[in-house]
Amino acid sequence: MRQGLRAGDSEVRCDQNGRPVAACLDALEQHFSARSATASAASLAGQRMTSEDRLRFEQLAGGDWVVRIPLDIDRVWAELSHQLEADFAVEGRRELLEQNPQQHDFLVNYMTVSERGRGFLQIALSPDVRQMPQEIRLVLEADGSGRTTLRAVNESERRFEAEDARELLERVAGLLR
């Protein structure tokens, strides 16, 4: 047990020889859930980061957007996994399709801002008249010294503009605040 990501919360880990023990975490989560509908062994939501530990959005030289997170990759992955399971559950708009703890990534189906903003004329002139979400991979990368970078990678055949990536990353980063 140690101080959580934000003041006032604790982080509970179950490790054996440096590896997480899933059965222990599941048992703790069941215990906390049974005691209170709001308690969760996995959730760190509602915590406040200190001003020096804010998430930072950065546009790279090629135009891609990333989020710099001042926390180690395993803590970010665990929290993001919990938050995406809860928030990315709206069919046709935002859905968590898969998560890979070894690769530290998530595959989501997401209705991008450019797709939501297509007007009648754009839809009528398009070969695909439906608004459709697209598959985006959210990738966490360790930056060293306990920092993590989050990026959005297009996994579909559809266009994925810098504006789409920024909007998705803002939504996901909001889950960590």
Rank of each mutant, 00 (worst) to 15 (best):
R158N: 08
E155M: 13
L96W: 10
Q99R: 14
T149M: 01
V108H: 02
R158G: 06
P127S: 12
V90G: 04
Q103P: 05
Q103A: 13
H104M: 02
A152I: 03
D143Y: 00
V139R: 06
Q134C: 13
A124D: 03
R118K: 15
E135F: 06
N100A: 10
N100G: 01
R130T: 15
D105M: 02
V129K: 13
E157D: 13
I136E: 00
I123M: 14
E135M: 09
G117R: 14
F106C: 01
G144P: 01
A142K: 00
L150W: 02
V129I: 14
E157H: 13
R159T: 14
R130M: 14
R94C: 10
D143L: 10
R137S: 02
R94W: 11
D143R: 12
T149H: 01
V139Y: 00
S156Q: 09
M111G: 08
N109G: 01
R137Y: 04
A152L: 04
Q131H: 10
T149Y: 00
Q131D: 07
R158P: 02
F160Y: 14
R94T: 07
R147S: 02
R118I: 06
A89S: 13
R94M: 13
N109I: 01
G119L: 02
Y110H: 15
Q122L: 10
Q122A: 15
N109C: 09
R130P: 01
V129P: 05
G144V: 07
G117D: 10
N109S: 15
